Simulated scan of single mutants.
Amino acid sequence: MTSLPTALITGASRGIGLAIARELEATHNLLLGGRDEQRLKELAATFRSAEPFTADMSDDEDVERAAKQIAGLDVLVHSAGVATRGPIDQMSRQQWRDEFEVNLFAVAQLTTLLLPQLRATNGQVVLINSGFGLMTLPDNSIYCATKWALRAFGDVLREEERPNGIRVSSIHPGKVDTDMQHDIVEYNGGEYQPELYLKPESIAKAVRLAVDATEEATVDMISVRPTRK
């Protein structure tokens, strides 16, 4: 890799994560995070300067193994996430555990492991949260809970790391035209209308705004909503 700053993006194989990788490609060396190593290798070959970061974010040992391979880091973007839907009285304890593992615990673990590298570069952490990190909706209890918890994690991390020069930004997208949104519409029995949703590239632009903020400035939070409802 060249001497450009390095950005690690989890969930980079599709959707918002892939759009963020495309947005940052011109200014950063990329580490593309995901579980499918072959897919990540093929994807990395399409970028100017990118390498796979293969890890199962639900496996703490695998996350630790992968993190040890990173020598230097300037930007950490957490875009990986999962969503479970259904009434609270139909959600099992295991479903709560599984979603918190990916949406919060893995984020906290990977961030903690990489703090020394980020402190060394006065780096940035960008959390791709959700509109559900600012509001709630029936049949989304687990997802909302993970995103509100992620918001609290980001707020505390921001204050703890200010003295160390690390900036922390939370991005809260509304409904985005991704596979997850297709699943939501299918769950609700509706008709999918892509023109009603944000494009993943719009969220990538919000990440760009946070990443490009001058050194004395931190973009604490950005909320992005579809123009049409």
Rank of each mutant, 00 (worst) to 15 (best):
F47P: 01
V77I: 13
T84C: 04
I70P: 02
Q69H: 11
Q94L: 10
R48L: 13
D56A: 07
A44G: 09
P87A: 07
G34N: 05
M57V: 04
S92D: 05
D56L: 00
T54D: 09
T54V: 15
D60K: 06
D36N: 15
N29C: 10
R35S: 04
L40K: 14
D89G: 08
G81A: 01
H78T: 01
D56Q: 04
A50R: 09
S49L: 02
N29M: 03
S79F: 03
R65G: 02
D89R: 09
S49F: 10
A67Y: 06
L30R: 03
K41D: 13
P87L: 02
R85A: 01
M91E: 01
G81I: 09
S58G: 11
E51H: 03
R65Y: 03
D62M: 07
M91F: 11
R85C: 03
K41N: 12
L73G: 00
D36S: 14
D36H: 15
K41H: 15
R35G: 09
V63H: 06
D59F: 05
R48K: 15
D56Y: 01
V75A: 05
R35W: 04
D62T: 00
K68H: 10
S58H: 08
A67S: 12
G33K: 10
I70V: 02
F53M: 08
T84R: 12
Q69D: 13
D59M: 00
Q69C: 12
M91P: 02
N29Q: 13
T54C: 14
E51Y: 00
Q94P: 07
S92Q: 07
L76V: 09
T84Y: 12
K68W: 10
M57E: 07
L31G: 00
H78K: 01
E61Q: 10
P52K: 12
G86A: 10
P87T: 08
V77M: 03
V63I: 13
D89M: 08
Q95G: 06
H78A: 07
Q38C: 05
R65W: 09
L32S: 10
R93G: 08
L73M: 02
G86W: 02
E42D: 12
F53T: 05
K68T: 13
A45E: 14
S79L: 04
G81V: 04
V82P: 02
E64R: 07
N29R: 10
A50V: 07
G33L: 11
K68I: 02
A55C: 03
T46D: 09
N29K: 10
L43G: 08
G72E: 12
D56E: 03
G81F: 06
T54A: 12
D60M: 13
A66M: 09
E42H: 14
A80E: 08
D62I: 06
R85H: 06
L32Y: 06
T46Q: 15
L73F: 05
L30T: 06
D89I: 08
L31A: 01
L32E: 08
S92N: 02
L30H: 00
R93L: 14
A83S: 05
R65Q: 07
Q90H: 09
A80D: 04
K41V: 14
T54Y: 08
G72C: 07
A55F: 06
A67D: 00
G33E: 07
L32A: 12
R48N: 12
E42K: 14
Q90S: 08
V63T: 01
T54L: 04
M91T: 11
Q69N: 15
G33V: 11
